[in-house]
């Protein structure tokens, strides 16, 4: 799963498969990081106190 694993090859199979994987992981990671950082800001008074739950 990493270029330093010895099965790794820079071929189409690895580029497409692992590209898709790391792309998905980056989105998940970035989304989570955003939510956590924004929540820290919001709860330390940086943002407005919003009691409206978005999903309702």
């Amino acid at each position: 799963m990493f270029p330093f694993c010895f099965e790794w090859a820079w071929d189409m199979g690895h580029i497409v498969f692992m590209g898709g994987l790391w792309y998905a992981l980056s989105i998940i990671g970035a989304g989570l990081t955003f939510a956590i950082i924004k929540s820290i800001f919001d709860s330390t008074g940086g943002g407005h106190d919003n009691h409206d739950h978005g999903h309702h």
Partner: peptide, 27 residues
């Protein structure tokens, strides 16, 4: 407060997670 905001903020970007979920589920 932190958990309250975290819940709210995660809901806010849920469409992004849902879209990623659809992509992963398809495969």
């Amino acid at each position: 407060p932190f958990l309250h905001h975290l819940s709210h903020n995660m809901h806010g970007i849920m469409a992004i997670f849902a879209a990623t979920g659809v992509f992963l589920s398809f495969f």
